[in-house]
């Protein structure tokens, strides 16, 4: 298949997934703020820190107010990772491969883009919890439609790889929100407030109920982190996402599982194998934030290698 087409399907999926996850981590913060004791200082700046785009934010806004940050992350046309920009780019990618994807997929992306664009006309009228919920649903609809209407061929596998790599990266970031929020008040650990915050975090990853089912009721920081990082069965955990991305990759290349022939297979395989044998205690030892930071760097590295191996093909001269 054409490199450009594979690239477009890969990014179409990444952008839809990205929009969904930006909605998730803004939503978790909204929830945390609602449950904070009155008088506590609202912490929004961490959201921008997590995106890694604090420079862009500072250049465009005076203050890190809730309003500015939500505007930046949802409707800012100039910021390429805002929800609106993600859907715009997803739509442009979809448009360039309309003859490859199903028309249902195109219509879904188009409708989501139009919905966000309309909301952006007047942000003061947006009811945020509902809006973020709609964005999450838009993401689910798109992946469901993709799985149910597109042949599971090479292009589909590129899409799947994009979706799961993006999700792995974003679950790491959602988990990181908690780190930043908790930082100034370590004494709260283990208090009822702390538990409420962890519940909010699990809910933002649609993980609360599933966590309860498999971890037998108790909510402890380590077990929540373990669930979101190392669980092999929960579809938003980092380990699960890497397993899925890796299986899509091997479907594309035909290389047997557990072996590698190109740098993408090697770096992704290595990362996934590391998680296979890691325990949450080892992660705590090196520090959750440091671990997540490092993980994001490695996932980015996989993305770079995908670009080099599959998309940026140069002729030999």
């Amino acid at each position: 298949m054409l490199s450009r087409v594979a690239d477009a399907i890969y990014w179409l999926n990444r952008y839809v997934e990205r929009a969904e996850n930006v909605a998730r981590f803004v939503d978790v913060n909204l929830n945390l703020m609602l449950d904070s004791p009155t008088g506590a200082i609202e912490q929004w700046e961490p959201l921008v820190l997590i995106t890694g785009d604090q420079e862009i934010f500072k250049n465009r806004y005076d203050q890190a107010t809730a309003e500015n940050i939500i505007q930046f992350l949802t409707f800012d046309r100039e910021y390429s990772n805002s929800i609106l920009s993600c859907f715009l780019q997803a739509r442009e990618n979809a448009r360039s491969i309309r003859e490859i994807i199903s028309s249902e997929m195109w219509e879904q992306v188009n409708a989501s883009y139009l919905m966000v664009q309309e909301a952006a006309q007047d942000p003061s009228r947006v009811r945020w919890p509902e809006f973020f919920n709609e964005i999450k649903l838009a993401g689910h609809l798109f992946s469901g439609i993709t799985d149910a209407t597109m042949t599971h061929n090479e292009g589909w596998h590129f899409g799947k790889m994009g979706r799961f790599l993006e999700r792995a990266d974003k679950t790491a970031r959602i988990l990181d929100v908690k780190y930043f929020i908790l930082l100034p008040s370590v004494q709260d650990v283990g208090t009822p407030l702390d538990e409420i915050q962890w519940i909010a975090l699990l809910k933002s990853a649609s993980a609360y109920e599933m966590y309860r089912k498999c971890k037998q009721h108790r909510i402890t920081p380590n077990r929540v982190a373990e669930f979101l990082i190392l669980d092999r069965e929960f579809p938003r955990s980092i380990e699960f996402c890497l397993l899925q991305a890796e299986s899509a990759l091997h479907q594309i290349t035909g290389t047997p599982a557990g072996t590698w022939k190109n740098p993408v297979e090697r770096s992704l395989g290595k990362l996934r194998a590391e998680l296979d044998y890691l325990t949450i205690e080892e992660i705590s030892e090196q520090g959750l934030h440091e671990f997540l930071d490092n993980l994001q760097i490695q996932i980015n590295g996989v993305g770079t290698k995908i670009f080099e191996v599959f998309f940026a093909l140069q002729p030999l001269n």
Binding site: M1, L2, S3, R4, A6, E154, F158, I252, F310, F311, L313, P315, L316, N317
Partner: peptide
Amino acid sequence: ADGYLKMRTTKGL
């Protein structure tokens, strides 16, 4: 490339 027209695919030219 090599005197022919080729397209860039995920499996090479």
